[in-house]
Design a protein around this nucleic acid. Sequence first.
DNA 1: GCCTCGCGATGACGAATGTCATGCGCGGCA
DNA 2: TGCCGCGCATGACATTCGTCATCGCGAGGC
Lengths: 210, 210
Amino acid sequence: MGDVMIPVLLADDETLIRTALATMLDLEPDLDVVAHVDSGEELLALWQQRVRSGEPVAVAVLDLQMTGLDGIDTAVRLLEQTPNAGVLIVTSHGRPGYLKRALSAGVRGFLPKTSSASTLASVIRTVHDGGRYVDPALAAEAISTGDSPLTAREADVLEFAIDGASIEEIARRAHLAVGTTRNYLSSAMTKLAVANRYEAALKARELGWI
Amino acid sequence: MGDVMIPVLLADDETLIRTALATMLDLEPDLDVVAHVDSGEELLALWQQRVRSGEPVAVAVLDLQMTGLDGIDTAVRLLEQTPNAGVLIVTSHGRPGYLKRALSAGVRGFLPKTSSASTLASVIRTVHDGGRYVDPALAAEAISTGDSPLTAREADVLEFAIDGASIEEIARRAHLAVGTTRNYLSSAMTKLAVANRYEAALKARELGWI
DNA sequence: GCCTCGCGATGACGAATGTCATGCGCGGCA
DNA sequence: TGCCGCGCATGACATTCGTCATCGCGAGGC
């Protein structure tokens, strides 16, 4: 019996949600939530500890938006260490770009929080067995969105533009000249078909491109 | 036994979270999650139905951020109909202004999702017994933040400014002249001590003032 | 070696934006 | 009744912003 149980590690900084999910998943006969923590850092520490002590490989269920290391950052580090670990990301915001980044990092499951509980449980099993599962709606959206047309610099300046900073401030943060910054912002705006840098930053974030 | 059970109605548009919370709360011996729905509208319909059929008064647990009617809107309508109903709001974003609006609507419980599960359960009991409970950290923040210094018009234009619209566009949406819109934005910017309307809108939202 | 291309920068120009002084009408209110 | 205060509006002004043409430079590609 013990060897058919799937060990699950859960990371989410919202305690209420995390414990509720842990409680619910633990009710599944074949799932064993061995630990749940409130940050990516703690999950990584726990993972390493389990690897060192030779415990059976677990499925990591990560919330995408966490303070500190977010779900994708955590997944990247975890997968650097354990290349084919089963990692599953759960998120409130179905941004296409996030899905792409997660998949290219090697994440094998990606679900919105609007999924059902039974979906989550079955995806945990799928991921544990080496399979993949991506929410169909999110996948369709990611495909139809296409890849980011932004160059690295354009993405940089947009990232600094999102909090409403002036071009001067953006230039300082990006270590670019003011005029250069303007140009990058301008070309990003053209690509995104919007009229100013704020809309551009908003849209790029919406699409997960920054 | 049946009459000591506290009926709980749950509304949250994230199915995974909602069912996990419902499952967890149902494990409490004195709580009975009689239904959980994914929108404020549905919760209101359910509430009315229960009132009409004379069922015992329940505690409503509402997620603050939902598409359509959000937690506060739902609470307002629910409390218009049943003035001293027990309503509890749960949220990811601890904006001071939200807390104030919720309390002035008559909500008696306000918790961040970073609370513990036992806190939620005990606050449901408190609210059911006619008591109040507000997360101490959120309460302190709300007190230190003070009230909104924005006039109604200033708040209006800021709301339209948050998606990056031009002043012309904001003016159209607010049914104001372009110059007037500029003036309101300008005075809002002064009050918020920022340099442009985007920062102003962001800051006002951060503080829960719009 | 030469050519091209992308990155970073500059300067000029018109449009959008933020500021300020000012005006007008209207509902309280002393 | 007269006097704020407030909502809404104008016009003028200096800045900031977005666009565009142009340039230097270094890293490949042939």
